[in-house]
Design a binder for these strands. Structure first.
Length: 200
DNA sequence: CCCGTGATTTAT
DNA sequence: TAAATCACGGGG
């Protein structure tokens, strides 16, 4: 019997949530069909002090409103005129911190994923980037603000009771945040030794 | 390497 | 109101 991650998992410091999500199963249900895969790469965004975060200095806009919700909600944003990215909000309400889901190893619904991603040549092209996995799993602004602890459309199932030990988690600077000065170099990207991580 | 593509933010 | 920016991906 698989159970989904509950509120108390998400209501923790964002780095612990980012590490704890590795190895868990992200599930999207579309028309009663499951699209799912194991989370293999995440990044933590630390809120007000974090120059790379959308909520840097407390910026609160229509776009990032869901980052201020309680841990366990989804923050889905649109960027570059064509891409969506999925974050899972961490911590408590009014503390706008979140984990960007950067890659999953696809396990269920692969044929539907290929249909949504004509550019994909092989399984490692399917979900190996934050916008790729949103395209493959039909994740868009309709899911912004979704409560992943109760949603029937988007949630995370527990595959491991404990986070991976530190020796199994690779750590490095976040991708695509060169504009963020000192914050660009901070070790806030977490990933497993797995062929489905993003190539950046 | 460069470009698409458009919402959002920042500069005038 | 105008211009720049962007937590990216695909194709040379």
């Amino acid at each position: 019997m698989t159970r989904r991650l509950c509120r108390s998992f998400y209501q923790r410091p964002v780095i612990r949530v980012a590490r704890g999500l590795l190895g868990q199963r992200l599930v999207r249900v579309v028309d009663g069909r499951r699209l799912a895969g194991i989370i293999v790469e995440t990044e933590a965004y630390l809120g007000l002090p974090d120059k790379a975060a959308h909520t840097y200095t407390g910026r609160r806009t229509a776009r990032n409103a869901s980052m201020w919700l309680d841990g366990g909600h989804a923050y889905v944003y649109f960027t570059y005129g064509m891409h969506h990215c999925l974050n899972v909000v961490a911590g408590l309400a009014e503390d706008p911190v979140a984990v960007l889901i950067r890659a999953i190893e696809p396990h269920e619904g692969l044929s539907a994923m290929y249909a949504r991603r004509p550019a994909a040549r092989c399984d490692t092209d399917l979900c190996s980037g934050p916008a790729k996995l949103c395209q493959a799993m039909q994740i868009n602004r309709n899911l912004d603000g979704e409560d992943m602890t109760t949603s029937k459309r988007l949630f995370v199932e527990q595959c491991r009771a404990r986070a991976y030990p530190s020796r199994d988690i690779h750590v490095g600077p976040r991708i695509g945040v060169a504009y963020a000065g000192q914050w660009a170099a901070k070790p806030l990207r977490f990933y497993l030794d797995n062929p489905h991580i993003s190539t950046a």
